[in-house]
């Protein structure tokens, strides 16, 4: 299989702060790829650079054979969509679920809106009863489902996931992770997923990259990580930390 997303020597600078220092990666079509790291590792910045939300100062990003320039066209956003970390901040406070889902359809001039909205709500397990609610009438998990529905409604082939469950309770996290796996299988999506939690990444992704301070530490397959076959100390530290507290 060929590379679907290719990132080469990517640099992002915010006001003289180098958030990404020449990072490269390759994601194959239909693959689920994880980015793991602690705060300040640049993992979220990488996602934002792909979507055009972070300023790229050097390097190239290629998605499905097209090398991206400074601006993204509408066709790009039909291919690539993103789910944000904080479900409390990613839904407009004055819009109903219906309005939120209608917006992408209106922007892209898609006609069969009614059908798509109903299908999207069904697909994320919300159903019609949620269609006319405001964000404040939804729980965190329901909000994240709406955010996923919004990302899916344009029928993209790539979904960028920025810590999609870190603001949720553990039981809700499981539901949302299951939902994401299910839509990925059904729609044959490519995932690029960011998390600070190694367990989530190994659960969701086939390959992953460990990042620290804006650089790649190492690239692993999930099975290498599970088998503790890692070469960098930093990764080993992360693995140990994910075991929980151990009294000396």
């Amino acid at each position: 299989m060929t590379a679907f997303i290719t990132v080469e020597g990517l640099e992002v600078v915010f006001d003289r702060f180098r958030a990404l220092k020449g990072v490269s990666l390759e994601v194959r079509e239909g693959e689920s790829y994880g980015l793991v790291g602690e705060s300040g590792s640049g993992k979220s910045t990488l996602l934002r650079a792909i979507t055009g939300l972070a300023p790229v100062s050097a390097g190239t990003i290629t998605v499905n054979g097209k090398t991206l320039g400074k601006t993204r066209d509408k066709a790009f956003y039909r291919e690539v969509q993103m789910v944000f970390q904080d479900p409390y901040g990613s839904l407009h406070p004055r819009q109903t679920v219906d309005r939120l889902l209608q917006e992408p359809l209106a922007i892209h001039g898609i006609a069969d809106g009614e059908k798509r909205i109903e299908r999207a709500l069904d697909e994320v397990g919300l159903g019609k009863g949620f269609r006319f609610r405001y964000a404040h009438q939804l729980s965190g998990g329901q909000r994240q489902r709406v955010a996923i529905a919004r990302a899916l409604i344009l029928e993209p082939s790539i979904l960028l996931l920025d810590e999609p469950t870190s603001a949720l309770d553990a039981s809700v996290q499981a539901e949302v992770l299951n939902l994401l796996e299910e839509v990925r299988r059904r729609r044959k999506l490519t995932f690029l997923m960011v998390s600070h939690d190694l367990a989530i990444i190994t659960h969701m992704c086939e390959r992953l990259m460990v990042m620290q301070n804006g650089e790649a530490v190492e690239t692993l397959t999930a099975s290498q990580l599970i088998g503790q076959r890692v070469s960098e100390d930093y990764t080993r530290n992360l693995l140990r930390a994910s075991e929980g507290f151990v009294r000396a």
């Binding site: 996290q173 499981a174 992770l177 796996e181 299910e182 190994t202 659960h203 693995l239």
Partner: peptide, 16 residues
């Protein structure tokens, strides 16, 4: 149960 754990493959995760 519902938390993913390294080395315990469960798809889908059990939910509450």
């Amino acid at each position: 149960n519902c938390m993913p754990r390294i080395g315990f493959e469960r798809h889908p995760l059990p939910v509450l």
